[in-house]
Amino acid sequence: MFEKLRETARELLSKGEVECVLGFAEGTLPMFYTPYLARKPEEAEKLVYGPFAAPNIATYLRKLKGKKAAVIVRGCESRTINLLISEKQLNRDDVKIIGVPCVGALDRKRILKDYGGEIREARIEGEKVIVKGDNGEKAYVLEEYISPSCRSCLYPEAIDPDIKIEGPSRDGEKADFSDIERIEKMSPAEKWEFFEKELSKCIRCYACREICPMCYCDSCFVDSNRPVWVEPGFDYSDILSFHLIKMYHMAGRCVDCGACERACPLGIRLSFLTRKLTKDMKEAYNFVSGLSPEEKPALGVFSPDDREDFIL
């Protein structure tokens, strides 16, 4: 099923149009595609795409500075590229964008949890994920196990790709924010309890930060000792500060790809934060991040008719 993509990548590499093609390959664990850089035409055979790809591949573009690269992207990843271009982190001319269809990224941890025992292999069959392991073979409906972020995705397909690989994608019209609405209706005390329950699991490994293509700062506020914004250790107030300040930095810059949540080794539902940001930006400013590389950062522009009702 990846023949069209592989053929495209092979051609780009053998004609010397690009030095490398950035995408995903089969990983060593079931339901887990791993970031992969094809540098020779024959390496294009390894390229894959689909729901098993957890990270946002645009994160790796910072490792390819100065190289002519092609990158295989889904909708969210192409929007990230637009943001990186608008923030002067990337030149559009340096990357060739290959758009692939997207049915959503798998919430792998939920399948691992629901299956219970050790899963030893997995495959996608139509709209199902078939897994095999210590508890026998089981099938899971993909749509029910995609990342929460993908549920509210309005742009599953790459925006303005140079090359487009055709195939079935999610329906971008059905943005579902019902879980966020549920939290919005909670009392402050309930919200506090809810977030504490999730975030107190944090071990400050910063996988969410490192996997995020928009967290590209050379030095992060959380590492600063002059001044100390966040103290060392695992006091909940510090963990909360880290996540909330990070979110402040992400407002209007987050494409809500869900990669941070999928990266978290503790399984923290970070999408509750990123999706609230996405929802608020849409409702307050009718803003969706990364739709065009020309677009100015949402919080970097001012319009006289901007909403003000949240200002205390």
Partner: peptide, 24 residues
């Protein structure tokens, strides 16, 4: 190449022991 330099592997590792010392 594929490593993003988070600390997940080191924190879950039963033999990794590196620590920082900080004053509060």
């Amino acid at each position: 190449f594929k490593c993003v330099n988070c600390g997940a592997c080191t924190y879950v590792c039963p033999t990794c022991y590196c620590f920082d010392i900080q004053d509060v």
